[in-house]
Nucleic acid binder design. Sequence first.
DNA 1: AAATGTACCAACCGCTCGCGC
DNA 2: TGCGCGAGCGGTTGGTACATT
Length: 328
Amino acid sequence: MDEKGRSLKNNNMEDEMDLKRGPWTAEEDFKLINYIATHGEGRWNSLSRCAGLQRTGKSCRLRWLNYLRPDVRRGNITLEEQLLILELHSRWGNRWSKIAQYLPGRTDNEIKNYWRTRVQKHAKQLKCDVNSQQFKDTMKYLWMPRLVERIQSASASASASASASAAATTTTTTGSAATSSCITTSNNQFMTYDYNNSSMGQQFGVMSNNDYITPENSSVAVSPVSDLTEYYSAPNPNPEYYSGQVGNSYYPDQNLVVGPEMLPENYFDYSGLLEEDFPAMQEQSSLNWFENINGAASSSDSLWNIGESDEDFWFLQQQQQFNNNGNF
DNA sequence: AAATGTACCAACCGCTCGCGC
DNA sequence: TGCGCGAGCGGTTGGTACATT
């Protein structure tokens, strides 16, 4: 039996059972949350049965990973996240889960949706294929530098009003040979963007306290950061959840709103689970650099809201010129 | 106010991979 | 070695909210 045959067999087995589909109810969510809080995740098919859910294991897994997990991050994709998605996608393509590993709290589904609804839409507007070299160049030489500028300006205005507690330091060097930027956060994370080489990921990583970038090992100037551990926000990348902003769920079919106060007491208690149950969180916590920048760069400020100001009009002109000539 | 279009996103589907037997 | 199964990934769909005409 080939892979397709096996798959069909599995699906037929699922079809034979009287399994529920469609939107989840509050009751189902509670069952799933309660069960996982007690027993942990994994073995989704048996989990579904044991939890008394008339759902496929797949459905339970998806519901948990994409919606119910406490570290799921909601809200708009920030400028920093957009930049990271563009960069990582240019490197890995549609490897959504891999990209999601570098965006704490974001799911592969969310990133995929973002890409399809926003990025592909703009490729369509530019009348070019999202995988074409033209579109890739447009991203590389126009949108990504533009994003960096906006992150910087947002960061600068924020640090002006809260200089002492500034969580991110942005330094830009401009020279005849290279123009690059470095967004440095106070939790040892840094991200650089080289306008000429268009390479952010190559220099994206975690710094130790003594591991400052020097002129010898980088063309990018980086400000040393004092007491880098002070603002470290790991392990939970989603503080909003604990403050109750994210825990509210609406079930339209029941006209019911569920807040975090209605969740089981041990919803956030993973004491019964092993650390390796959350490898992604472990890794992501060390890459949680943009959490601190978010205070500076508004999440509602989108790259795609171009065309609303004189500056954006200039940007569109440049973009049109690029599209016509293929260069600047 | 109603009709239509658009954007968003949760959920599903098909497929593949990896592991244990 | 091949099979069965659980798990995960990427593509797609359908429902809903919001915007526009």
